[in-house]
Design a protein around this nucleic acid. Structure first.
Length: 624
DNA sequence: AATCAGGTTGGTGTC
DNA sequence: CGACACCAACCTGAT
């Protein structure tokens, strides 16, 4: 493609911004007045094979892409979202050569992998003489800016975030920008065609999502897709059986804006919203807005969300109606997201794990991640295709099988067979629908870590990464650290009970009846503790509570069975409390030398029940 | 330096 | 059903 000196050809790279409304980056791209405009999505093998993504999130992503593509076509019949099936690091240089690109524009992303990827891309673009334009747009405030205003340190509390944001533009996020009413043409079809391009096949080994693929995986066979039309991939194309997708949640900017406007119309709901007072057990309708998946994929702008809510609350304030205050209210909830983004932006890749993480407390959990530092060194020679910076991107993490009992508990937690109906209902809701209420996440996360199993939060975070349609690395890791009392939160004596907590919200056990149907007929007296029901009642209600958990919920032929609880919760609660206190006394953090070289073991008791007498250190030293 | 209040959302028991 | 004290006791940040 010949470049004419005056022509402006813009490649707009969609990633975390599957929308047209309130996109500062898209606005900047169109402000260049391009004569040719090509909005692309690069179908990145890193996300496809190295991130954990279950069927529900694939579907949601595809719906976001299809909706955006249709919206482009509505603005310009020649336009769509051009999906290119290759890694951005290899395909973008080919694209700007092939299409004579003069400007590359995208939304800034401070996620650890994104930074690695984007800096590589920017470097290549500059070398090729392609001008790069980026704009912040994913969060209320630029995470890097929040960090700077927080003295360069990760934001570890809401008060820090509030103080930092006060120093930025009067403490309020930017107002949404205009939605474009038109977009320029792409090249003509024959010029867009990439058939002659040298197509680099994706490395599908290891494929962290292999277990979800029922059919052959041919998604990378053709760079423009099987129909050579740059189409949005389908579930079938990526090897997933569409019938395995059960989430009722629909993706796409159109759906997001409609849902938001419905909530905004209910001013009473918006103004009196208080997160701790929303029910984790509610379904149809759910008690919260469920807009988080849209924030993740950028099908809804968080600043539009914030300002629409803010405007309602201002109106109500003038009308002298009582509003709920932050952080429990909706703007406060959105600010929490920014806190996690800014904390991650300051810490980098280790934020999502224990190893090398300066903000996470080290606890002697079961099933800890194996250290990659040493593994990495050992295998370096044998690993081919290891790109620079790969050590910052941690795909499949192996973990220490230090306890077969803990491993069994983990598997039972993961599959919703713990014998605690409240926990099992939530886990099954997570697996089938990809979404559970925030307090439900608290409940199951506390149970897996400091309030039951004493298993590493990293195991839980991986399961959430796989199944949540709203999974966001910064928020997921941040919340897991919060709930496991290893960062952000330290009151480990406040422990969620798998029985009392659910009962408080849902005394009839409706959530359990829906997601653990084998218990549907149990009287509400026993629904949270079915093992206490008399045998005669268990028979009458059609489900035996038994130690044999193998056939749980099979329901084929014989009578239904449900497992007895896998441990005595009160006993485990006390055990965890004692262990947490001991681990806090030891006082190690994820980046301490003794964590990295394994010496931590000497500081914790041998049998896992007691600790050595001398605390390592009482006060934490902050680096310079 | 020592103390105290506050921290998104615990559980239990009483009024 | 809501508000409150108490349980036992972590941290940070302000004074």
């Amino acid at each position: 493609m010949k470049k004419s000196s005056s022509q402006i050809v813009v490649l707009y790279w969609h990633r975390t911004d599957l929308r047209l409304h309130d996109s500062p980056a898209l606005e900047a791209a169109l402000a260049l007045k391009p004569s040719v405009f090509i909005p692309v999505w690069t179908w990145d093998p890193h996300y496809v094979y190295r991130a954990r993504v279950g069927p529900n999130r694939w579907k949601f992503l595809m719906e976001c892409q299809s909706d955006l593509s249709k919206s482009y076509t509505k603005l310009n019949a020649k336009q769509k979202l051009w999906v290119v099936r290759e890694a951005p690091q290899t395909v973008l240089p080919k694209l700007w050569e092939k299409w004579g690109i003069t400007h590359l524009v995208f939304e800034k992303d401070t996620d650890a992998y994104a930074r690695e990827r984007d800096s590589a891309v920017i470097q290549m673009a500059e070398k090729a003489g392609v001008e790069v334009v980026t704009r912040m747009g994913r969060t209320l405030f630029d995470p890097d800016e929040l960090v700077r205003k927080n003295g360069g340190k990760p934001t570890m509390s809401m008060s820090q975030v509030e103080r930092a944001m006060e120093k930025i533009d009067g403490g309020k996020p930017a107002r949404p920008v205009e939605t474009p009413q038109s977009v320029p043409d792409p090249w003509k079809d024959d010029q867009m065609n990439l058939s002659d391009l040298d197509h680099e096949m994706a490395d599908s080994n290891p494929d962290l999502n292999a277990e979800h693929r029922a059919n052959e995986d041919r998604q990378y066979d053709e760079i423009m897709g099987p129909n050579k039309d740059f189409g949005v991939p389908t579930l079938e194309e990526i090897g997933i059986d569409p019938s395995s997708v059960q989430a009722p949640h629909r993706g796409g900017e159109s759906a997001a804006l409609k849902e938001l406007s419905q909530f905004i119309a209910d001013e009473e709901y918006i103004a009196t919203f208080e997160k701790p007072k929303t029910s984790p057990a509610a379904f149809e309708p759910q008690s919260t807005t469920l807009l988080s998946p849209h924030l993740h994929f950028g099908s809804l702008s968080v600043r539009k969300f914030w300002w629409d809510v803010q405007d309602v609350m201002e109106r109500r304030k003038k009308a002298k109606k009582q509003n709920a205050g932050p952080p429990a209210n909706l703007p406060g909830q959105l600010l929490f997201r920014d806190m996690y983004f800014a904390a991650q932006a300051a810490v980098g890749a280790p934020f999502a794990r224990v190893e090398g993480n300066s903000v996470v407390r080290f606890i002697d959990w079961h099933l800890q991640s194996k250290l990659v530092q040493s593994e990495e060194k050992k295998n370096k020679k044998h690993r081919k295709g290891t790109e620079k910076g790969d050590e910052n991107i941690l795909p499949a993490r192996d973990y220490e099988l230090d306890s077969s009992e803990a491993e069994e508990w983990f598997q039972r937690w993961k599959t919703g067979r713990t014998g605690f109906p409240w926990i099992d209902a939530l886990m099954r809701q997570l697996i089938t629908e990809g979404w559970i209420h925030h307090l439900g996440r608290h409940s199951v996360a506390c149970f897996l870590t400091r309030g039951g199993c004493y298993i590493s939060w990293e195991r839980g975070a991986e399961v959430f990464e796989e199944y949540l349609i709203d999974h966001e690395t910064a928020c997921n890791a941040g919340n897991w650290m919060w709930l496991s009392c290893t960062a952000f939160f330290a009151q480990f004596y406040r422990c969620y009970s798998p029985i009392a907590f659910g009962k408080k919200w849902d005394p009839n056990g409706d959530l359990i009846r829906r997601y653990v149907p084998e218990l549907a007929k149990f009287d509400k007296k026993y629904i949270y503790e079915p093992w206490k029901a008399p045998i005669a009642d268990q028979k009458k209600w059609g489900c035996r509570v038994t130690n044999d958990d193998k056939d749980t919920a099979s329901g084929k032929g014989g009578p239904q069975v449900y497992p007895k609880p896998m441990f005595d919760f009160d006993e485990r609660r006390q055990f965890c409390l004692d262990k947490m206190k001991a681990a806090y006394d030891v006082g190690l953090y994820g980046n301490d030398k003794k964590v990295l070289n394994g010496e931590w073991k000497e500081l914790f008791g041998e049998d896992g029940n007691e600790r050595t007498d001398e605390p390592e250190k009482k006060k934490r030293k902050t680096s310079s």
